[in-house]
């Protein structure tokens, strides 16, 4: 019995290691590309860089606009502001709505909930043209505010469903106790429910952040000044129409991916619990 479980463990490890390498192989190729001088490709399977240079990273970070100001810094700032603001706005709206859906019974509750689900099915290309006109009329094209508004509304439906599911698992007795102790409705929400749902909040925040940080079609459509670009749009232009600088693209990809990976790493403990208790139980 003991012997058989040991061989099973070894086999599991072997399989998992193999599968992990398989999974990470494409990523390693990108990292290699970003460190290898030149833009050309080699016919090789080796994922370890043979010649190492930081030129591509320097080129990406040191990119300047025609007036000589740093473009990368500006675009990084745009991306950060957009992603963080989206997270904040989206989370605030989603958490309050989810709380109401979880704790109150009011007319329109069922419709509201199903609306948040149906919205997931809207194809983005359908919304893009009218949204462009709308943002144009509001004067929000080429602006961070416009993007934040659009991104936070696209992130809300998923967040509402996840948070609502999680709030449902928090016993009402806790709030009742707080009520007896003289807490207001908002106090119960802010001091009791929110602190208890930290895992779900973490996951939701991660999702909102990712939505905004990684999105590029809408950003590409709504932004047409280099200084207003977010990082994904900048990255897209390295493989754009004029010439393809794969080295810079790879270096940029690594730079763009690092913050999200870091967030995933920090929040991954919450990911399993937060995701299951929330969105998935509905």
């Amino acid at each position: 019995m003991k012997q058989s479980s040991r061989t099973r463990l070894v086999l599991t490890h072997v399989f998992l290691i193999f599968f992990t390498i398989l999974t990470l192989y494409p990523v390693m190729l990108v990292v290699k590309k970003s460190l290898t001088p030149g833009d050309h490709f080699e016919r090789t399977l080796n994922p370890v860089p043979t010649k190492v240079t930081l030129d591509h990273y320097k080129a990406v970070i040191g990119s300047k606009d025609s007036a000589g100001r740093s473009l990368f810094g500006r675009q990084l700032l745009n991306s950060l502001v957009v992603a963080l603001a989206t997270t904040l706005v989206g989370m605030f709206l989603a958490a309050t709505a989810a709380y109401a859906f979880s704790r109150f019974r009011f007319p329109g509750r069922a419709i509201g909930l199903s609306m948040f689900l149906v919205v997931q099915m809207f194809p983005a290309t359908l919304i893009m043209i009218p949204l462009y006109v709308l943002l144009d009329k509001m004067g929000l094209l080429n602006s961070v505010a416009g993007l934040v508004l659009v991104y936070s509304t696209t992130a809300i439906p998923f967040c509402v469903w996840m948070l609502k599911g999680y709030f449902d698992t928090i016993p009402k007795e806790l709030e009742e106790a707080a009520w007896i102790d003289g807490a207001t409705r908002f106090g119960m929400f802010w001091r009791v429910v929110l602190p208890l749902s930290r895992p779900a909040l973490a996951v939701t925040a991660l999702f909102s952040f990712m939505t905004a940080w990684n999105e590029y079609i809408l950003a590409e459509t709504f932004l047409n000044e280099e200084t207003a670009y977010t990082l994904p749009v900048m990255l897209q232009h390295y493989v754009g129409s004029h010439s393809t600088s794969w080295g810079s693209f790879a270096a940029g990809s690594v730079l763009v991916s690092i913050p999200v990976m870091a967030l995933f790493y920090v929040l991954q403990k919450h990911l399993v619990g937060g995701l299951t208790a929330g969105g998935v139980k509905g």
Partner: peptide, 21 residues
């Protein structure tokens, strides 16, 4: 009370998702 919690998100969805849709 319930409405004050739901309405901000609803308005956002209405203007930026349902209307363009």
């Amino acid at each position: 009370v319930a409405m004050t919690y739901v309405v901000p998100a609803m308005i956002g969805m209405l203007v930026l998702v349902l209307v363009p849709f």
